[in-house]
């Protein structure tokens, strides 16, 4: 089977200036990968490279064997920020239907409309928010809103789900619940996930792979293999300490910013 995401010697950045370079990684169908690293290291850039919003400077990036332009059709994307506020009055159902309706300008057949609506209903239900379908998204809590965003992405039946910091505004309990829901949903559907996070701990029970982005580099591997003091210190050529407590929670310590600017 072809890798879901395959990067070979990949360099990505803005206006010809690399944000990170020489990246080699792969994500398989159905794998749950966390993308972690310090602020400004280029985690979101990685997701935007996959959706074609950031240009590749060199190297190769393929999605299910296709180049980014074609492959991005297989992606469900939940960006870090959305330009929404209290005055954004649209129901959760209508919001989730937006990308479906935009696929055809006019005259979608009755069966097409029904199929889209059924997919959206099913996604809302599977994320436990069917009762919020008729509520305006401006009235939802952060956790509920993230579930609406993920339902929108999943309803498009993606093969790859890109989630940019979906846990950042949630408390510990809500983070754990959302991580569990996403994991259960994607496992059942064989959907690959790349999830950007600052705190790896809510994801640990579900993770297959970690992409660590720092100092202009991307390191990919299995959590136990990558997240060790020796490996990260060696890779980034600075003093990094990976600490695990008795329950398996991880903390990664090291001043990546100084090394990056040095």
């Amino acid at each position: 089977m072809v890798d879901l995401v395959l990067a070979k010697d990949l360099t990505v950045g803005y206006q010809g200036r690399p944000q990170w370079s020489g990246a080699n990684f792969q994500v398989l169908h159905g794998e749950f990968a966390a993308v972690i690293g310090p602020n400004g290291s280029g985690k979101s850039t990685l997701l935007k490279a996959l959706t074609g919003q950031v240009g590749l400077i060199s190297g190769e990036l393929r999605i299910d064997g296709l180049d980014v332009g074609e492959g991005r059709r297989k992606i469900g994307y939940v960006p870090q920020r959305r330009n929404l506020d209290q005055d954004t009055v649209i129901t959760s159902r209508e919001f989730a239907l937006l990308p479906h309706r935009a696929r055809r300008l006019i005259n979608r057949s009755k069966s097409e409309r029904a199929a889209s609506e059924a997919l959206v209903e099913e996604s809302l239900r599977s994320l436990g928010i069917a009762d919020l379908a008729d509520r305006s998204i401006s009235t939802l809590s952060g956790g509920q809103l993230q579930r609406v965003y993920i339902a929108q992405a999943l309803s498009q039946q993606p093969e790859l789900l890109l989630l940019d910091e979906p846990l950042s505004n949630l408390d510990i309990r809500a983070s754990a619940q959302l991580a569990k829901s996403v994991s259960e949903l994607v496992r059942g559907r064989k959907v690959g996930v790349m999830l950007v996070a600052h705190d790896l701990n809510p994801l640990l029970p579900y993770l297959d792979k970690v992409l660590f982005v720092a100092n202009g580099r991307v390191v990919c591997g299995y959590p136990d293999e990558v997240l060790t003091t020796e490996r990260l210190s060696d890779l980034f050529e600075l003093s990094v300490e990976v600490v695990r407590d008795s329950s398996g929670r991880i903390a990664i310590m090291g001043d990546f910013s100084e090394a990056h600017h040095a």
Binding site: K48, Q53, Y77, L98
Partner: peptide, 23 residues
């Protein structure tokens, strides 16, 4: 506007995702 209604709605309410899908 009728012809572009669905695209306009997508771009107005969800610009970031619309952008990522090539709108």
């Amino acid at each position: 506007m009728r012809l572009a209604l669905n695209l306009l709605l997508f771009a107005s309410f969800d610009e970031e995702v619309a952008n990522s899908q090539g709108v």
